Structure formats: C-alpha cells, structure tokens
Computed example of a mutant assay.
Amino acid sequence: MSKETYHHGDLRAAILAEAAVLVAQRGADGISLRELARAAGVSHAAPAHHFGDRRGLFTALAAEGYRLLAAALAAATPDFIDAAKAYVRFALDHPGHYAVMFDRSLYDDTDHALVEAEAAAADELNRGVGTLGDAKAKADPEGAALAAWSMVHGFALLWLNGAIDTAGDPIDTVERLGAIMFDG
C-alpha cells in the first residue's frame, strides 16, 4: 500500500492514533498488531512494517505521549498550578498514551527518541515546579519535583481508574490539591 493511496495520509500516525484508542478502551494487553491493523483499516503487515513488533509500537506510542505532554506543559504558563492542571488534563485527554508511558514493561526505555521526549516532559514539569514559592520546595528542588510529580501523576491515575469520587471537576480538584501541598 503506497503512501499516496493510503486514505489516512500518514500511515504511521494513523496506526499510533488507533493504538492509543484501543489501549484506552482495553489496555495494552488487549491489542495485537493484527487487530490494530484491522481497526485502522490497513493491511495486517502495516504495523509491523512501521514498528517491527508490539514493543516497537508501544515505544513509539510512549515517545509520542511524552512529546504531547511536553507540549502541553510548555503551553501552560510557567506557574506550578498551571503545569499541574496541564499534566492532569493531558492524562485525561490521552488515556491510551498515558497508560503506555508509565508501563516500562511495554517499551524499550533506551530508545533515543523516547529518552529525548521523556526528558523534555520532565524539564517542562520541573520548570513549573521551579516557580513554587514554598520555602521547603526552594530548599529541596529535587524533592519538590518528586512531590509535585507524585501528586499530579497519582491524582491522574486515581481519577482514570475511578478509584476516587469523579463527580467533580478534576482540573479544579488538582488546583485545590496543589494549593494545599505547596502554599503552606
């Protein structure tokens, strides 16, 4: 199937988009390359051609997720609360990517593109943490970064898994939690 005749325009992107949807619906263990090809409307060999195997697919999906997260965090103003809200919004808007990004058993964590994308996302989150005025956060920026990431990541996972009451607005809630944790 040539790129010119492919109806989606960008075969690799179309496969990744479909993979993200399927992972969000069923989890990573619930999809195969063959099923992914069928869902994306491409030949059964197309995913293997672009990604090699499931590990390659999930490596590419995680890298794409980290790039999207870095962009979302960069678009937020450099205030921690805005970065926290952007992080949670990303997790809720991209649950398939998010699930793969934080399951290292699925992908090759030494992949150059993945390592770069992950570092970019971490740099952006740390940029937000760097705006904290809390004296303890300023005295221990590494600890503050871990605390901040733990808060937003833990909250996002709890929300996505329905482990907490999801009746309210998650963005308002994470804003409230960030103020409790870092405004003294």
Rank of each mutant, 00 (worst) to 15 (best):
T110I: 03
A163D: 10
D79F: 05
P141V: 09
D169I: 06
A83M: 03
V100R: 00
Y107S: 03
A71C: 05
F155H: 07
R55F: 01
A163L: 15
A144Y: 08
M181Y: 15
L132P: 02
N126I: 05
G128A: 09
Y98G: 00
F58V: 00
R176D: 07
A39E: 14
G96I: 04
V42I: 09
A39H: 11
R34P: 06
A121R: 05
A48I: 10
K136A: 15
G168H: 07
A14W: 12
M151I: 06
S2G: 15
R67P: 02
H50Y: 14
R55N: 01
L177H: 08
A14Q: 12
D103Y: 07
L73Y: 03
E118M: 13
A13E: 15
L16N: 01
L106G: 00
D29S: 13
A135N: 03
A19K: 07
D79A: 12
H8R: 14
G52K: 03
E35D: 14
T166L: 08
A122T: 12
N126T: 08
A145W: 09
L106Y: 01
S32M: 07
E18I: 06
Y87C: 04
D10W: 05
A74L: 08
A28F: 08
A17S: 14
A117K: 02
A48M: 10
H50R: 04
L36K: 04
Y98D: 10
A113H: 10
T110H: 13
G52F: 02
T166I: 12
R67A: 10
H153A: 13
G143L: 12
G52H: 04
L125Q: 09
I171F: 04
A120W: 06
A119M: 10
R67W: 04
Y87D: 11
S32N: 05
T59M: 00
L69E: 15
H97N: 11
A46C: 04
V100Y: 00
R54I: 02
I164A: 03
A144T: 10
L92G: 04
R54W: 01
G178V: 14
A156I: 09
H153E: 11
V42N: 00
T173Y: 08
A62Q: 02
D109Y: 12
L11F: 03
A144E: 08
M101T: 00
A139I: 07
A119G: 10
H44M: 10
A147Q: 15
E4I: 12
L146F: 13
E35V: 09
R127N: 04
V42L: 06
W149E: 12
A45C: 02
A40Q: 08
L146K: 15
